[in-house]
Simulated assay, not measured.
Amino acid sequence: MTVIIYDKTEKGREEIATRKHQLASRLRTLLVMVDGKHTNDDIMRKVTGLGLTEQNMQELLEQDFIVAITVQSIPAASNTHASSGTPATPAAPVTKPSEPATAAAPSLPAMTDAERFQALHNFFNETIKSAIGLRGYGLQLKVERASTIDDFRGLRQAYVEAVQKAKGPEMARSLRDRLDQLLNDGSA
Rank of each mutant, 00 (worst) to 15 (best):
T2R: 12
I4C: 07
I5N: 04
D7S: 15
E10R: 09
K11P: 02
G12E: 04
R13A: 01
R13W: 15
I16C: 12
I16N: 13
Q22Y: 09
S25N: 13
L30W: 03
G36D: 04
H38P: 00
D41R: 12
I43D: 13
R45V: 03
V47R: 01
T48V: 09
G51Y: 04
T53F: 03
Q55D: 12
Q58R: 13
L61P: 01
D64N: 15
V67P: 00
A68L: 07
I74M: 09
A76T: 10
A76I: 13
T80S: 09
S83R: 13
A88N: 09
P90H: 07
P93K: 11
T95R: 07
K96I: 13
P100L: 13
A103R: 05
A105I: 14
P106G: 03
S107C: 00
L108N: 11
L108G: 06
P109K: 12
A110I: 06
A110W: 06
R116H: 01
F117R: 09
Q118K: 15
A119K: 10
F124D: 06
T127Y: 06
I128Y: 07
K129T: 08
K129G: 03
S130D: 15
S130G: 03
S130P: 04
I132W: 06
G136W: 07
Y137M: 11
Y137T: 14
G138Q: 12
G138K: 15
L139G: 04
V143E: 10
E144Y: 11
E144A: 11
R145S: 14
I149W: 03
Q157G: 02
A158V: 03
A162Q: 12
K165L: 10
P169F: 09
A172Q: 05
S174H: 04
S174R: 03
S174Q: 06
L175G: 03
D177M: 07
D177C: 01
L179Q: 13
Q181P: 00
Q181A: 13
L183P: 09
L183N: 13
L183D: 09
N184I: 00
